[in-house]
Design a protein around this nucleic acid. Sequence first.
DNA 1: AGACACTATTAGCTGAACCTAAACCGCCGG
DNA 2: CCGGCGGTTTAGGTTCAGCTAATAGTGTCT
Lengths: 228, 228
Amino acid sequence: MRAAVVPEALTRSVEDYLKAIYQLSPEGRPASTSEIAGLLALSPPSVTGMIKRLSEHGLLEHVPYRGVQLTKAGRRAALRMVRRHRLIEAYLVEFLGYSWDTVHEEAERLEHAVSETMIERMASALGNPAVDPHGDPIPSADGSIHELASTALSDVPVGETVEIQRVHESQPERLRYIASLGLRPGVQVTVVDRQPFDDLVTISVGHERQVIGRELGHALLCARAGGQ
Amino acid sequence: MRAAVVPEALTRSVEDYLKAIYQLSPEGRPASTSEIAGLLALSPPSVTGMIKRLSEHGLLEHVPYRGVQLTKAGRRAALRMVRRHRLIEAYLVEFLGYSWDTVHEEAERLEHAVSETMIERMASALGNPAVDPHGDPIPSADGSIHELASTALSDVPVGETVEIQRVHESQPERLRYIASLGLRPGVQVTVVDRQPFDDLVTISVGHERQVIGRELGHALLCARAGGQ
DNA sequence: AGACACTATTAGCTGAACCTAAACCGCCGG
DNA sequence: CCGGCGGTTTAGGTTCAGCTAATAGTGTCT
């Protein structure tokens, strides 16, 4: 009834599916076939097929036509991949001169190839960091994660000053653009204006002013400056 | 008639086959199906099948029942993998606290996953080393390699003092044993005796004496001390 | 020269992970 | 309450990379 004691190695694909499902819903809301297909750039029938196998292996709960949720075992495996991914990103930035816009793709391949030993060596070389270069929290080796409940920049009231905590984006050009605005985790910004349409907000960063659109406003997660 | 300009990515398996064939005969002598099968722990029919595909893609020259040789393109791809493998080994030993007996397995997986960029970053972090932790030469990025013509310890005449250059072994326990004898690249040893059977040689290392058997004697490649 | 022992290859099968085209389900609007 | 639309699943097919069992070729020994 329980998962095997030595959890037979998962394939790359399986690891990718589990991580994708976790990312679509860290809280455990059901994820749909087409969401998964979209994120992994696969056809829906391929996803249905894999879902079937994964539920048989006890990694997913599948209600046909309704979506899937990770089981305990599935969530554990997914968090393991998230830990790997984020630690690798942190390591590449710290020790191999990567910038935050190039690191995702490399980590995407390495996360499947690296041993547990190597991950833990990288973690200690980094001093067991709590967050990756985009500000995303790194799950601990035992599978616990602190999702900091932060607010999207789009939702910050006018007049308030906040600190950017996380930048939820992986496309290199977008990340380069964000960096060019001086926005990255740890930076303080003040919302100086808000337009009634399209979630447009105007912020000041240092001495500059920037207008931020809907998508970007949702990708930038903030906390009240000073507090957490 | 030439290889494609953008050489479509090779699969993991293909990379393994090419590297194996190169390792069976760096000089280009034909390698047999069963040698390849033995090295990769696969069945001979599987190897025949892959050989067929690889020759169609112009990476191998195959004479049925006679064996295979790498073509220019095949050799280039093989050396690329050897470079990756050896640089990764060097990096793991230098920066992540690996010892030479554990490094092979990790490199065996990483060599397929790492980008060209990352390999070159690791190479420069290491100062572009010429050899890996076992003393094996690292091919340059443009695909040239310096195979140092060294002599097996079994073939060194009695009375001569030589420096160990390379330790041709990848099994962890054997490597640990070799290390426990104080033998590693750069160490000087003197052959003090030789038995007429079984290639047994007695050597002195520092103040210790050791008897070395056939297999080990062939795995230790040496050069006249001082010279190269 | 013939037989035998290897080694290599062919034939045919499996499973993973994808695909397209076709059928199916759930719900919303008329 | 029935039709249709959109998302989901089933059906059936492909490629890669492995396997076993059967066949074929090479070379050696008598």
